[in-house]
Design a binder for these strands. Sequence first.
RNA 1: GCGGUUGUCGUCUAGUUUGGUUAGGACGUCAGCCUGCCACGCUGGUGACCCGGGUUCAAAUCCCGGCAACCGCACCA
Length: 493
Amino acid sequence: MSEKSKFDKVSDLAFRRGLYFPSAHIYSDSLAGFWDYGPLGVTLKRRIIDLWRKTIVKRDEMLEIDGSQILPESVFKASGHLQSFVDPLTECKDCRVTFRADRLIQRRLEKLIPEALPSKELDSLILKNGIVCSECGGELSKVFKFNMMFRFSAGPKLGNQVALRPETCQSIFLDFLRVYKTMRVKLPIGIAQVGKSFRNEISPRRNLIRLRELTQAEIEIFFNPKNIESFTKFDQIMDVTLRFLLVNDQELELTAEEAVKKKIVQNKLVVYYLVLLKQFYELVGINPQNIRYRELHDEERPFYAQSAWDLEIKTSLGWLEVVANHYRTDYDLKVHSKGSKTDLMILDNGEKIIPWVWEDSMGIDRTLFVALDAAYTEEKKRIFLKLPNYLAPIQVAVFPLVAKDGLTEKARTLYDMLKVEFDTFFDEKASIGRRYYRVDEIGVPYAVTIDYDTLKDETVTIRDRDNKEQIRIKVGGLKDWLKLRLNFIPPNQ
RNA sequence: GCGGUUGUCGUCUAGUUUGGUUAGGACGUCAGCCUGCCACGCUGGUGACCCGGGUUCAAAUCCCGGCAACCGCACCA
């Protein structure tokens, strides 16, 4: 038996079948943290996003936008990223080990050190308290700030400083007022966006897990905090159970209703969206026992969040953060209102307010990984992806039983009939068994085989990926049979 | 970003210690034969020394630099 970890096996499968692979890899100076999706990966990613649209965005009547990836620096000055999306670092002059300066001082002095403290003050704290390298006792360098945004200039003049957005949501805040005014909506309203974000990570690792260019699907819910008790959608989900890991390390499983009553979560609105996300990941194929919400400690929380929950999924790598959820209050609209000198207040039931914001920030690349990780199945020598039908990149394979006696031609005709409506794959090469195994590995749920009976009575066999069982149906009914089983249909429809 | 280890066909790998090979094999893949339902078999083909520089008559092999991967540390909105 191979000693490979499951993560390696899943990664190997993804490379071998071209789901994703390192970007610009034919060049020897290709960069870590940038990955390309191949044909199957693109389709899988698209299906994950489509599922998100159906089960969250559309279910909740959210509005979707698509904002620029490049934004002027003033946006990030106002949002706080210019100042706070940085790590204050110091390194040992002897052994070159790097430390987070604020955390190092905090640990040594056992008192809270604000992350945003100027470098000079951190320097003097290090000096005054005689703090040295915790590894070798060497002297520490001056504190320097590392900003994780990619910054450059747009246009021919150097003056127009811009940055690649480090999170997609800033566009949602910038566009909020226009969307609100043009779409005739009222609070609470969700604005959603899926797109790329960019972070200059110090050390990207483990292929899709930590990227410098990543795809996020983000939702910002704008609401009036005064009206939170009358949030009626809560009634739809109050009995759903959620697992929590609290800052005091307590683990518990509660219904949404209990979580609100016991004040584990802020309010009904927050828990409603936590439930929607949990249900989404169950549809991605994750066992509910492997989904939990972890409460973030004060020092883990981003600067804009009053409280934060990470949706974590237990994978072959251990618990992995897949969605970051933040209670952003009125922070964002306030700072952009001030930064842009634009009044972002709106009229809600006759009252002028700045809406508050609840955010769900989903990592799509990580979601794709957890989907693969959960779907990966070994059964004797057979490897197959037990993906839900509506996520499978290739939905149906068409095979002639043998490549002779007109079976290939018949199969081709059938393939042509299906290929536009479904993601279909045709293969006549090698034995039928080998062809089944090939498509198992990429999670094709159904294989349609044309045999000698097809020529006589227009029937085909459909072979099921998971149990290898076959049924025989009329060609005429094939499309409807597939349609019924391949599309995602919400439970209440 | 620091330290350690490692880079050979799509994948796994032999060869590197001790410089000289048509760089070998397996799986995959392609062509053909075979094949009446779960990785059959046979024949043939395709396909690699991470990149750059140095040493040498000669470099996959030794040296230096870069890049990447893995592990540990640090970091991680």
